[in-house]
C-alpha cells in the first residue's frame, strides 16, 4: 500500500462500485410527489452520496468514471440514456455538475470529519448538491440552448422541490451509512489521528476491514 500510484486498488474498487451505485439509482422509476410538479428521479442522489461517503477525491473520481461509462454508450442515465449525445444536449451542465458536486460535497464532508453531523451535512449538501449543481446546470443551458438566466431558471424551477427533498434524503442516508460502517470519515479532533488529510483518506479502507469480518 506504499506504492506511489495515486489511487490504490482498494480505492479503485470503491470508485467503481459507487459508479455502479449511481447507475443503479438511475434504474429506480421516477416518483411523483404532491410537493413537486416534476417527477423526482433518484439518480442525482448518486453524486451527493458518493461525495458524502467516499470523500472528494474518490467520490469525484467515481462520478468521472460513471460519466465515462455513459459516454462509452452504456444507457446508465435515468430513462436509459447514454452515449456521447447526452454531452451535447442542453442538460450537459448538470452532468458536469454531478462530478463537481460529488467532489465538493466529499471534500467538505471529509474536511469536517467524523462524527458525521446532520446539520453540517445538510449545509454542505445544499451548497454542493443544489447551489453548485444549479450554477453548472443553468450555465450549460444558457450556453447550449441560448437561453437567458431567467429562461433557464424557468425550465428548471419545477425540479427545485424534488432536489431539496433529495438533499435531505442524501444527508439522512449518509448519516445512516457512516453509523453502520464507521471508519471512513477521518477524525480531526483526535490527537492520535496524526497525519495529513490524504494520509487519513488512504488509510480508511484498510481500517474498515474488520467491519467486513464481523459479518462472516
Amino acid at each position: 500500500m506504499t506504492s506511489q500510484t495515486p489511487l490504490p486498488a482498494r480505492d479503485l474498487a470503491l470508485i467503481a462500485v459507487f459508479a455502479g451505485i449511481t447507475a443503479a439509482l438511475g434504474l429506480i422509476p421516477p416518483i411523483y410527489l404532491p410537493i413537486s410538479p416534476a417527477p423526482i428521479t433518484a439518480q442525482s442522489l448518486g453524486p451527493m452520496l458518493a461525495g458524502a461517503i467516499l470523500g472528494g477525491r474518490r467520490g469525484g473520481a467515481s462520478l468521472v468514471l460513471f460519466m465515462a461509462m455513459v459516454a462509452l454508450g452504456l444507457p446508465l442515465l435515468s430513462g436509459g440514456r447514454g452515449g456521447i449525445g447526452v454531452f451535447l444536449s442542453p442538460t450537459v451542465g448538470f452532468l458536469v455538475g454531478f462530478v463537481v458536486c460529488a467532489f465538493a460535497i466529499g471534500w467538505a464532508t471529509y474536511r469536517v470529519g467524523a462524527p458525521y453531523s446532520i446539520w453540517k451535512g445538510l449545509v454542505i449538501t445544499l451548497l454542493g448538491g443544489l447551489v453548485l449543481m444549479y450554477i453548472f446546470g443553468l450555465t450549460g443551458m444558457m450556453i447550449v440552448a441560448h437561453l437567458s438566466l431567467s429562461q433557464a431558471l424557468l425550465a428548471q424551477v419545477m425540479y427545485l422541490p424534488g432536489d431539496l427533498t433529495k438533499a435531505v434524503i442524501a444527508v439522512l442516508v449518509a448519516k445512516g451509512v457512516h453509523t453502520a460502517y464507521p471508519g471512513l470519515l477521518p477524525w480531526h479532533g483526535q490527537v492520535a489521528a496524526a497525519g495529513s488529510e490524504t494520509g487519513s483518506l488512504d488509510d480508511s479502507p484498510v481500517d474498515s476491514a474488520p467491519a467486513g469480518d464481523q459479518v462472516r
Binding site: 486498488a9 482498494r10 474498487a13 462500485v17 434524503i169 439522512l172 453502520a180
Partner: peptide
C-alpha cells in the same frame, strides 16, 4: 427510500472491500 439505501450502500462498501482484496490478490497494483 432510506431503509433501502442504507443497507444497499453498506453492502456495496463491503463488496468494494472484497473487490479491493481480489484486485490486490490478483496483482492489480
Amino acid at each position: 427510500f432510506r431503509a433501502f439505501a442504507v443497507p444497499l450502500l453498506v453492502r456495496a462498501l463491503r463488496d468494494a472491500d472484497a473487490i479491493g482484496d481480489a484486485l490486490v490478490a490478483r496483482g492489480f497494483d
